[in-house]
Design a protein around this nucleic acid. Structure first.
Lengths: 203, 203
DNA sequence: ATTATCTATAGATCTATAGATAATGC
DNA sequence: ATTATCTATAGATCTATAGATAATGC
């Protein structure tokens, strides 16, 4: 970390603080302290708390959208295989970024204008994914290999099941404490979610 | 609202502000203004911002836990029928309290000590519900009327699907805009979630 | 010359309380 | 006498900036 320059150290510290506490509860002084720099440096590099936040939020929300949608929408392999793969990737990604879903939700809801472009991009991506999915589902359904489900509902099912495992984690872990060794829950959840989705699709 | 006394007016305004903005972003002056009382009154009745918040959060989180768990755990009717009923009640409840899931998540994550008793209560309720559910599932499975699924996974599935429809609502509605008339989405989602869960359970 | 960093402080809030004043109930 | 309300302000933060100083590159 000492090898990083000041700007990078600030960004890294800001990411950590904003993700953990959200915008309102994060103090710029705390970010400066965590980055090991003078508080004035934040303003020198990023002008204001808002601008610094924007840096973080855009990147993270873009990443989140891409990871949750990207692995589903690009054809090439058969649909069922791709869905299975997407669920695995979702859960691995979330395990590596456990604070992201909450951050995403809080900031999306806060309706600040700074998110509009990022949200616009996600919506655009989602619409494309839904269109592609629906076409595939209809084609498979015509051959009797799949139930004719609505693509937008399927997508919402997958994302709900995958994300909520992590949103509910603080509760879930305390309730299920002892039932699973660490890491096992994630793997079991993967299989569980895949199974749930497949049963929904299979005729 | 004019018929309410000062204490109730403060509570009502505080609930609205806290639910919308969360603890950190809510100003006590804003609460006072919304309640139409002097700012000093908040401290007269509730001593501090923390104590006022505690009032709101305990009630709301208790309500949330009860609504999400209560309708599942008490036997009497057949399991399948009860699950179907629970999902309907979840979605109706959430439709009437759309800010609650986000509030719940934000405050649970913030790990403040003030939540511990409320969380304790939810955990306790969840464990009982899981035990009862598992017994019923095993009994049905023995007669071949149900797949032998893990109760904690089933519960997590149901809650994920129900809650996330509302957490994701701001995005979902913008993406699906035009596809549904208002209110229809909720009803369709009910049927969808019930179907998903039933397919998971049926042999 | 330009870029980076520090010190010191302005200016804006925000929570909380002290103390005076009005309303209520006995 | 007790309860409720208001005015005024203390005290603590927090964001942001001004202006001096050091480091860097030409």
């Amino acid at each position: 970390m000492d090898s990083l320059n000041t700007e990078q150290r600030i960004l890294q510290a800001a990411e950590k603080e904003f993700l953990r506490n959200g915008y309102a509860a994060t103090r710029t002084t705390a970010i400066a302290e965590a980055a090991g720099v003078t508080h004035a440096m934040l303003h020198y590099y990023f002008r204001s708390k808002d601008k610094l936040f924007e840096n973080i939020v855009k990147e993270k929300i873009g990443l989140m959208g891409e990871m949750m949608l990207g692995s589903i929408g690009t054809p090439g392999k058969p649909l069922f295989e791709r869905l299975e793969n997407a669920i695995c990737r979702h859960l691995d990604f979330l395990a590596a970024n456990p604070d992201l879903p909450r951050f995403f939700i809080v900031e999306i809801y806060s309706q600040s204008e700074r998110l509009n472009t990022a949200v616009e991009a996600i919506m655009c991506a989602a619409e494309k994914v839904i269109a592609v999915l629906q076409e595939e589902i209809d084609a498979l359904a015509a051959r009797g290999e799949c139930r004719r489900v609505k693509a937008e509902m399927l997508l919402l099912d997958i994302i709900s099941l995958d994300i909520f495992s992590f949103i509910g984690a603080p509760i879930v872990e305390r309730v299920l404490c002892g039932l699973f060794e660490h890491g096992n829950f994630l793997e079991e959840r993967k299989r569980e979610n895949i199974d749930t989705i497949m049963r929904k699709l299979k005729p």
